[in-house]
């Protein structure tokens, strides 16, 4: 009984993790578009949005790649929480364009996946108007 309830959850977590990995760069860009942030603030914001990272530190290689690609830039500034200065990331013009493009792609993609995944009434037969017609088919139907 326990197995039956645990396995789908684990599989679900794994799928969520994989899906998040695919769009984590866009999530980070979107969070910086809101305001400049430092590393831990990304994790907090993702957590607050219900997106929990398996390994929090995985944002750093991603941020480094985005910085090298010129999508974000960094600067050091005192943290609002106090303590040592933090490395903040902010969006560049290129990052803003990438975010806009990524949002459009994500919107289209989720709509398409949603259409495919949404439960539909299955009759067992394809719709008549979508079904390819030919003489052979007609003959068989008779």
């Amino acid at each position: 009984m326990c197995r039956m309830t645990k396995e789908p959850t684990a599989a679900g977590d794994q799928r969520r993790s994989q899906l998040l990995r695919g769009v984590l760069d866009l999530c980070l860009l979107s969070l910086i578009a809101d305001r400049p942030r430092y590393g831990y603030e990304f994790v907090e914001a993702l957590d607050a949005g219900g997106l929990e990272l398996v390994s929090e530190g995985s944002i750093y290689p991603l941020l480094a790649r985005m910085e090298r690609a010129g999508l974000v830039e960094s600067y050091r500034a005192p943290s609002s929480a106090g303590g040592a200065p933090r490395k903040y990331y902010r969006l560049t013009g290129g990052g803003r364009a990438e975010l806009a493009h990524g949002r459009a792609v994500w919107g289209d993609f989720t709509a398409q996946v949603g259409r495919v995944l949404s439960p539909q009434e299955k009759t067992g037969e394809p719709d008549d108007d979508r079904r390819p017609h030919n003489d052979h088919d007609d003959h068989d139907d008779r």
Binding site: Y38, Y40, V54, S55, E56, G57, Y60, A81, R86, K87
Partner: peptide, 23 residues
């Protein structure tokens, strides 16, 4: 190192260990 140290410190304050940060 400074960036990672700050993150580990923040995570520690929130009750999360180093393995949750670096895997």
């Amino acid at each position: 190192l400074a960036e990672l140290a700050a993150h580990l410190e923040d995570a520690g304050a929130a009750g999360r260990g180093p393995r949750e940060v670096v895997g």
